[in-house]
Structures are given as C-alpha cells and as structure tokens.
Design a protein around this nucleic acid. Structure first.
Lengths: 250, 250
DNA sequence: CGACAACTTGACGGGCGTCAACCGGAGTGG
DNA sequence: CCACTCCGGTTGACGCCCGTCAAGTTGTCG
C-alpha cells in the first residue's frame, strides 16, 4: 500500500474522493503528483467569476466558500456552501465558461490545479475520473434538494434544513460534531441561500431559539435538540450520499 | 469515419454527447455496442423511484419525463424536465440509491442500459466517460439556475423563465423552433416546478397572454414575442452550455 | 350523457417583504 | 480612553404577493 503523504495539499481531497471506494496505489500516486499552487485568500475574495474561463481548478484547503448567481435585476441567490476538502470548480475541467461565482466566506487557503494536467490524469486513470464524476453527481443531488428547499418549504423548515445540512457536512468533513458547528454567515447571506430576506431570517432564527432547537453565540451554532431540528426541517441525509457506495463492480 | 447506424436507439444520445466534441470511431463503436432493451411507457409511469437501486440507466427516446422530490409532509417539487435524447438517471451509474423520482409526463419510449456494461465502457473509453460527465455537469448547472429561479424571481418571471428554458431546449433537441413548442404539463405540474400553486399559475399564464408574450392552445405554447418573454424572465441561455466547448486539449 | 380531470374565477387571509428606526460590538483615530 | 464610524443584528408597523378555499366551467372520454 502506498504511503500517504499527509503533507500534500491534495491529501484532504483524496480522502474525500476515497470515501466511496478505494483507489489503487497507481491512481493515488497520479492524483497526488498533480502540480498545485497554494494560495492564501481573504474573506470576500473571488475564486471564480461568472464568465471567466479559468485555466485551473480550485480545491478548498481551509475556510468556507460559497457559490452564487444573480438575476438580471440584481437579486442574489446562493446555491451552495463549501467546506474544507471540497473542489470548488470541478466543472471548469470540462466546461469552458463559468456560469456562476465562487467567493470566499472566510479567510482560508486553497490550491489550484491546472486544468490541462488534471484532465490528463482523468483520461489516463479512469478510477480517478470516476471518483471526481461521483463528486459532481453528489453536488447535483444537493442542488436538487435546494430546489425543493426554496420551492416547497416554509421559512422555518427551510432554515432548519440548511442548518441540518451544514451540520451534517461539517461532521463528515471531520471538523467536529454535527450539533456544534461554525456558521460564518451573515443573516443576509443566510437569506440569499434560502430565498428570504434578512429581516425574516432574523425572526425565524429567534423562533428556532425559543423552541429550544438551536443556540447561537456569535457565528457558532449549537443544536441542543438535533432530532427536533431534523423533524422541523424534514431532513434526511440520504441526498448527501455519504455512505460508502458498495456499487456494482465491473 | 465510422458509418453511423441511424437505427440504433443509442444514436440520439450519441448525437447529443458529441455536441461538445467529436468522439473517435472506437469510442462511438463502443458506445453504440452497448446492450439495450427498448421499452414503451405510458404517461405517469415511474422510471425510477426514490430509494430504488436500479441496475440500469434509462435513455429517453421519445416523450417527456420529469424528476421530482417530496418533503416529509408531502409537498412535491419538480426539479427538472427531460426531452428526447436525455439520460434520465445517469447518476445510477455511480450512486447506489436513487434520491428522487423520475416519471413520464407523456407516453413515450425509452431504452435501458445495464449499469455493469455501461460502467465498463466508461472505464475503458475515457472520452465516453468524459462526455457523460459533461452531461451531468450541465444538468447540475440547470439545477443551480432552478434554485435561483424559485428562490429569487417573482411568479411572473419565474414561469417566463421556465418557458424560455423549455423552448430553448426544445429547439436544441431538434424538435422545432424555440418559440413554438409542446408543453404537456398540467398547471399543477407547472406549479410544482416553480414552487407556486396551480391557482396562481393559472392567473400568471393569463397575464402573460394579455401582455402578448405567449399564446396557449391546449398543450401547445407559441411565443409571439420571444425577446419580450426573455426580458420578463431575465433569461440568458448561457447556463445551458449549448455551444461547442472548444475546451483545452490535452 | 354522465363522470372526471383540468382549468377558471372570486373572496379572503396570511406569510413574508418592505421600510425605517434603533442597538451593539469591533475597529479606528484623535 | 473616549468619540466616531460602520456593519450587522433587532424590532415594529404596514402592505402585498401569493396561498387557500370553494364554486363554477370546460373539455374529454367512456
């Protein structure tokens, strides 16, 4: 078995990619050998801008990021949040032009992988391509859940659902327990993610507090009643596809 | 150049996959050689059910299909519509358990491709895997636009936007001009796709008619003022990624 | 011609948006 | 050490977009 190099910035990503199935030593080696450039970024920095044609893919090493789009008349909608280990613009591997923005929520660190080298590895190592493809399928599943969330849940369960998702992903990214996580979002950003206004988000957060479902202190969320929050949200984690896939073997 | 077999049910899909870049003759041969079983389906038939672990992928040969999810308390949200040539559950290639439902909107025809054989081709023919991966990335892009649509547009532009998308995809699927297409949806289904109620959808459709933006006759939509509809919708087609990609060549 | 689904219309109500004022903490500079 | 500023959070009053309910109407298929 290949000794893993914990010091490679790609190791975090590799661990996430292997969540659904081991790669061979050759696959790991090829992936870890990708050329990268690390980069320190500040809250608010753009990682990708709509219309860009970036020549590299970004991997989030630390900090929080988010994707968002805007309507013609300037309304913003956040479409996803990203934690350590997430690939931020995997789609740039195959799609030329970015159709949305990716921006840092907090200070953090990311590394950039040149598209050309990345594509080469994908073409030569089918299992690596497959793991990355799977990753983008899970992203897509999360987007579908978000459509359901903003389309068919009322404000309270909508926000509760988002909190459940973030807690669950926080835990599965190895950052801590799901019921005690960082939420480095202003209420306006929370509103942009849920299709509400910041005023209403404020009222709903308070009501969730009164119900004993969440405790807020600064940008930290504690969930004293996880089952209750889940019930209000109608949350089940299946759409995150976190379990190993035990998928059909060829 | 490989002579294409117009009679293969996979030919429609191949043409769509090659929209963004030619495959080699070997790639085409491998894809067209996939074992398939054709199937006639009726409006309302389920193609995939949430929780299923299907052993094949479905390709839509004719008719309309849609995907939908439900909240814990039974609210339905449609998350996408599908036309001839679309792969209906590509994600079953890599994900074990379906997290949503796929159902026929009209009578139609589909063909099923066994997951095992399909995966084998993907592992052996990197370019085929890449084309399919690209297809799921475009799906994901459409989901993001839907999040924006239900999250941040009012009822009128929301419905206008959906009509613009369907018209555009109708045309690019080779079914006819974008401003004159079939819309085999009840107003309740339209409501489930836009996060509204059927009553309100009814009123908005009428108002779009009064504005001279659309004409409805039965399940047919004519758009006398496409530019106007686009303006009301705030629609730009970039998120559909229809242009050839001219992507970085390795 | 009866039955059923889909569409249409009107009256009414509520969840959430809008507007605006105020508060509170963190950073800044004198 | 204290004003000043600024951003984000909080609160209240009010109103609108869209949901709800319920009663028709139309169209289609047996």
């Amino acid at each position: 078995m290949l000794m893993l190099q914990d010091n490679s910035p790609l190791y975090t990503a590799l661990r996430k990619l292997e969540r659904h199935g081991r790669l061979s030593d050759d696959d790991r080696r090829a992936f870890l050998a990708l050329p990268v450039t690390e980069e320190r970024v500040r809250a608010g920095d753009h990682v990708v801008r709509q219309g860009d044609q970036p020549q590299d893919c970004a991997l989030l090493l630390s900090g929080f990021a988010f994707r968002h789009k805007m309507t013609a008349d300037g309304e913003r909608q956040i479409v996803s949040f990203h934690l350590r280990g997430d690939m931020l613009d995997l789609q740039q591997l195959l799609l030329r032009r970015a159709d949305h923005n990716v921006q840092m929520l907090t200070d953090g660190q990311l590394c950039r992988i040149p598209v050309i080298a990345f594509r080469k590895v994908c073409r030569e190592r089918a299992a690596v391509a497959e793991a990355l493809w799977l990753d983008s399928l899970i992203d897509a599943s999360i987007f579908r859940e978000w459509v359901l969330n903003v389309g068919r849940r009322d404000a309270r369960s909508r926000i509760a659902h988002l909190l459940c998702e973030l807690g669950t992903r926080w835990e599965s990214a190895g950052l801590g327990p799901a019921d005690h996580f960082e939420l480095p979002l202003t209420q306006e950003q929370l509103a942009d993610a849920t299709g509400l206004t910041s005023v209403h988000v404020n009222r709903v957060l308070q009501s969730l507090g009164v119900l004993g479902l969440i405790d807020r202190e600064r940008r930290l969320i504690k969930v004293p009643d996880w089952a209750g929050l889940q019930r209000v949200a109608g949350f089940t984690a299946d759409y995150l596809h976190q379990e190993p896939q035990e998928s059909v073997r060829t």
